Simulated scan of single mutants.
Amino acid sequence: MTPALREKAIAVCTAKIALKGEGVGLSFYAFFANRNDTPDLLMEMATWWIKTHRLDHFVKATTIKAMLIAER
């Protein structure tokens, strides 16, 4: 995963946690706009989420954030 995408995902997780609390769940779509103008980045995140880590569709944002930070 590119460093820029990792940092964007960490920022999104941080914002969602601040807004909705530590129990909030996310899918990898949470890191992109409804109209995705960056399909390569979407596929990069999907690969990390689905193929690399075999995560469920929704995972707690705190878990995702910790995983992303650990892989820096």
Rank of each mutant, 00 (worst) to 15 (best):
S27Q: 14
A33I: 03
A11K: 12
R35T: 15
I10F: 04
A15F: 06
A11D: 11
F32H: 13
I17T: 06
T62S: 09
D37V: 08
T2K: 13
G23F: 00
T52R: 13
N34Q: 13
R54W: 01
A70M: 03
A9H: 00
N36R: 08
S27E: 15
A30Y: 13
D37I: 06
A70K: 10
V59F: 08
A4H: 12
E71Q: 15
K51V: 09
L42S: 06
V24Y: 03
E22K: 10
T38D: 14
P39N: 10
E71M: 12
H57D: 11
T47A: 12
I64R: 00
A33W: 07
A66C: 03
A46M: 09
M67D: 01
A46Y: 07
K51G: 03
K16Q: 15
F58Y: 13
E7R: 05
I64L: 03
F58T: 09
K8S: 09
L26I: 07
P39M: 10
K16I: 10
T52N: 09
R72S: 13
D40P: 00
I50D: 13
L42K: 07
M67W: 09
K60C: 07
A46G: 05
A46F: 04
L68Q: 04
V12I: 15
P39R: 06
L68V: 06
T2R: 15
A46I: 00
L68P: 04
A9Y: 00
L68N: 04
I64G: 00
M45P: 03
I17S: 08
I69M: 11
A15C: 05
F31E: 09
T38S: 15
T47N: 14
L42N: 03
Y29P: 00
L68F: 08
K51Y: 11
L55C: 03
A18F: 01
K16V: 12
T2C: 07
L42I: 04
N34W: 04
K16S: 11
I69R: 05
E22Y: 00
W48I: 02
F58V: 10
L55V: 01
K51F: 12
E71C: 04
D56H: 06
C13W: 01
G25F: 02
G21V: 09
A4Q: 14
I69W: 02
F32G: 05
E22I: 04
I69Y: 01
A18C: 01
A11Q: 12
I17G: 09
V59D: 12
K60L: 15
L41S: 14
K8F: 05
R35Y: 09
G21S: 08
A66Q: 14
S27P: 04
H53W: 11
A66Y: 03
I10G: 02
L42A: 10
L19S: 11
A30D: 15
